[in-house]
Design a protein around this nucleic acid. Structure first.
Lengths: 215, 215
DNA sequence: CGAGAGTCTGATCAATTGATCAGCTATCTG
DNA sequence: CAGATAGCTGATCAATTGATCAGACTCTCG
């Protein structure tokens, strides 16, 4: 039986398997995001994971399925990152919560630019991979839209249609880190440093929430 | 003699050549931006240009060189687009000029998202193609930085380090159009329509120039 | 007109791609 | 212990890749 058809059962009855599987998924996420779906070869992924190339087809039936697994793992990471702070948070006002969400989102996109790179690669043209990404992106879009509509109603952000705010946030937030090597080369700033990440979050919040007041 | 070594001389002494060359460059720009360097095949490009595949190696010595020619043509397009309005413009104050530059830039990124797609594909990791892009991007970055520093000094934009403003503009501006198919699917908006393009330019200017005043 | 250079194509190359298959090994089960 | 099965690999497949080459065609110019 192909193992990919029944994940998440009788763990630890057998030697390893799942650790190896995770290493493959991580290597795939790294290489797919850096070189795109077509640019990353299964042999490169296998080499980085330290396994033989046919093992990818054993655990995942195809390159396409492996790509989906890599995407899933990155969205899981995003979920964990976004929920980590919000869980511990009691109930605060909407604006404070929104500010934290925005800052956490930028922090994630800076520390894991892989996800945004993949989205930018695969959603420029309609297709099966864009459809797959949409199943993950759509709920995020919906809740973000709702958040911005709510904030605009309260006057906490400018009266801009939520969709535009969404793309300004998801574009203006991660791009500096998605283009990390370019940014380093152009500006000399290190976009992986905490200082730069915080400064960018400050900049976005300053513009979105007018905070601290401007002018 | 390989024709790619001496471009731009005795035009019209021979049958065609350059029209064909242009069709190839355009097809290359289209396909490289849509499917990335590795994802686009020389046969696909040749098919879209309506020529045989070996002709690509005749006019351009390699796929890499063809990619460079496609990039050059897109940056030329950007130059023309950005200068078109500014030429006709007399001397106006810095802020008005900056607002026009920002709006023109967003207009270009909406009507020619190919260039930003290519930059996003090839500047995520250091390499020869990123270096080539940098020769075009660096002057743009430098002048934009200078513009923002000047505006911040005048209090026309918030006091945010210019590099961050640069990535907020070049990220938040084009992303909606780079991810056009996704945007259409998510929001129902048509990111190729003039109305949406103008609304996005309004949104960016609202945030950057606080215009109209907020709150 | 006829030599020659520039343009373009069909056939083909070696290399690389994702995928398959047979078989090895180690563990679990009865 | 013995059969079965999950995990994994080396060898190999057909398909596709970018590139090369010889030759056909066309226009120019002496």
């Amino acid at each position: 039986m192909t193992p990919s058809s029944e994940r998440g059962r009788d763990r630890s009855t057998r030697p390893s398997a799942d650790p190896t599987r995770d290493r493959i998924v991580n290597a795939a996420a790294e290489l797919f995001s850096a070189r795109s779906f077509e640019g990353a070869t299964t042999r490169q992924i296998a080499a980085r994971a330290g396994v033989a190339q046919p093992l990818l087809n054993y655990h995942f039936t195809s390159k396409e399925t492996l790509w989906q697994a890599a995407v899933d793992s990155l969205f899981t990471l995003l979920d964990q990152h976004m929920n980590a702070r919000l869980q511990t948070l009691g109930d605060v006002d909407d604006v404070t919560r929104a500010r934290l969400i925005v800052r956490d989102f930028i922090g994630f996109s800076a520390r894991h630019p892989q996800l945004h790179r993949i989205i930018l690669q695969e959603s420029t043209a309609a297709g099966a991979r864009m459809d797959y990404l949409l199943t993950h992106v759509r709920p995020i879009y919906e809740s973000t839209i709702e958040m911005f509509a709510n904030l605009a109603e309260q006057g906490a952000v400018p009266a801009i249609p939520p969709t535009h705010l969404y793309y300004i946030l998801t574009g203006g937030g991660p791009t500096m880190f998605v283009l990390g090597p370019e940014c380093q080369e152009l500006s000399g700033l290190d976009p992986t440093s905490d200082a730069v990440i915080e400064a960018h979050a400050d900049a976005i919040c300053r513009l979105l929430f007018n905070d601290p007041p401007f002018p």
